[in-house]
């Protein structure tokens, strides 16, 4: 089985894997980082979004082997030194989650939106940018509020 090595949440990791292993399977099953979820088979729900080399991608639609040497951040790697990331805080403060299943992907996407679009986000921009993330619980109302608040908090 081929070997893959990468940095995940700041730690060097490697594994011998079946070549068909998706990045999300490598994270969930090999590394037991189960915060990244799988909600569909067609790359639409966004439950699996992680950051690779600083950009958000759907880890269910990419092979682990394609990320040799990459720097991967998952939801587990967002908080530092026991301090939540401002976007995590914003989701809790604004009740931007209910069952929590889509939440890791939502938060990773939200951080990526801020990285690309800045800290002042209007409602329309946020809704548009969330096109690739599906939530069945919240009706998005509070997610939109959370992303806007998280974006502002990230400026501080």
């Amino acid at each position: 089985m081929p070997k893959v090595s990468m940095t995940v949440n700041g730690k060097a990791v490697s594994g011998n894997i079946d070549s068909r292993t998706l990045l999300v399977q490598f994270l969930r099953e090999t590394l037991r980082l189960t915060g990244t979820h799988v909600g569909c088979d067609t790359s639409q729900c966004g439950c699996c979004v992680v950051h690779v080399n600083g950009t958000a991608i759907k880890s269910c639609t990419t092979l682990a082997l394609s990320h040799e040497g990459a720097n991967v951040t998952t939801i587990e790697g967002l908080a530092h030194d026991g301090k939540l990331h401002p976007m995590q805080e914003a989701f809790r403060e604004n009740h931007g989650l209910q069952c929590g299943f889509c939440t890791p992907g939502m938060i990773m996407t939200a951080v990526d939106i801020v990285n690309r679009k800045g800290n002042k986000l209007d409602e329309q921009t946020i809704r548009h940018e969330l096109e690739g993330n599906i939530c069945r619980c919240t009706g998005y109302h509070n997610i939109v509020k959370a992303v806007a608040a998280g974006a502002e908090a990230m400026a501080k």
Binding site: G35, H37, I75, E76, Q88, L97, G100, T103, P104, I107
Partner: peptide, 21 residues
């Protein structure tokens, strides 16, 4: 009141059935 359960969900520490091994 802000939700007590949220801490584990926003940090990826929820334990859903597929997370059970």
């Amino acid at each position: 009141v802000r939700r007590k359960e949220d801490l584990r969900f926003i940090t990826g520490r929820g334990q859903y059935t597929d997370d059970v091994n």
